[in-house]
Amino acid sequence: MVISKRIEPTLLTDQVFAMIHASILSGDLPAGSRLKVRDLAEQVGTSVMPVREAIRRLEEMGLAEREPHKGAVVKSLTYEELIHVYGVRRLLETEAARLGSENITPEDCQRMQAEYELMRKAIDEQQVIALLDHDEAMLAILYQASGNPVLLQMIRTLWQQCRAYKIVGAQGSLDSGTDDSLWRYQQDLVTAARNGDAAAASAVNEASLVDATERIRARLAEQATT
């Protein structure tokens, strides 16, 4: 299994939650994986109670769910949820890009560029999780410039909820070998931010999320037939 590190008997629930949560976001525990309480407790070296509480938190976050005859599992991917989550992301992230580009500093634009370059390196190395991490870091710099911490926090929560979808989409683009959608929109977004072009930044995010939704939808359909 993917969780092997043992932890000290302090703040057990928080630590167990953090470890399982990280494994889900990294893709080590993919959608549909069973979260067996006793197995997880043995792997992390705790009793079953902290694991049960950690799984309850994951269910509240929308990262785990109960299935008949299986118990808790990492939440499965569905077309309906994809449409709903990405629809909300479009509403929030187009506005965050617009506001951020109106207020971002040259120093923050340089930080965005640095994260963009690290993202391109991760793409070249076929490192899905690293490219998503750097992409989110780049976007967070822009969104933080909006001056609305609640907006950024809501977006971060959505990123966690749809990380499994993002992995599917990114991996599909990497596998194609010719898809530039993983970096083309981000490049345009950095340019829009540097120019303080709110309309362009908003439009880039809109186009990026529409494109991502379609790529992930196609990937899910392809997986359903295999």
Score class of each variant (00 low, 15 high):
G177E: 09
K36I: 15
L220E: 07
R111S: 07
K5N: 13
I20A: 06
S202C: 09
S176F: 06
H21C: 09
D197L: 08
F17N: 07
M1P: 11
G100M: 00
H69Q: 14
P50E: 07
R194F: 04
S33R: 06
R34Q: 12
R184P: 09
T46W: 10
L35V: 06
T78K: 05
T78S: 14
L142M: 03
A221S: 14
R38C: 03
K75Y: 05
Q127N: 09
A207R: 13
S173I: 04
Q43W: 15
Y185Q: 01
A140Y: 01
Q126K: 09
A198T: 10
T46R: 09
G62D: 14
T157E: 08
M61C: 11
D211L: 13
L152Q: 02
C162A: 12
I129M: 05
T191K: 12
P149L: 00
L99C: 06
A54M: 11
L35D: 08
Q186H: 15
R163D: 01
R184D: 11
T226M: 13
I216K: 02
P9V: 07
A199V: 15
G177V: 09
E67K: 15
S173D: 04
I55Y: 12
R163W: 08
V48F: 14
R156Y: 11
K75W: 03
N103Y: 08
Y116E: 00
R163V: 04
V73S: 05
V88G: 06
Q161N: 00
N195A: 11
L118S: 05
R163H: 02
T105I: 03
M61G: 10
E81V: 04
R34P: 13
L118D: 01
V150R: 09
A22R: 14
Y143S: 00
V74I: 07
V204D: 06
V88A: 12
L131E: 01
D179Q: 04
A145D: 02
A31C: 04
A140M: 01
A145H: 02
I83A: 15
S26N: 15
A224F: 04
A22M: 12
L151Y: 01
R217F: 10
R194L: 02
L40G: 08
C162M: 10
R219E: 15
M112R: 05
K36F: 13
M119H: 07
K121A: 09
C109I: 06
E93L: 07
L58C: 10
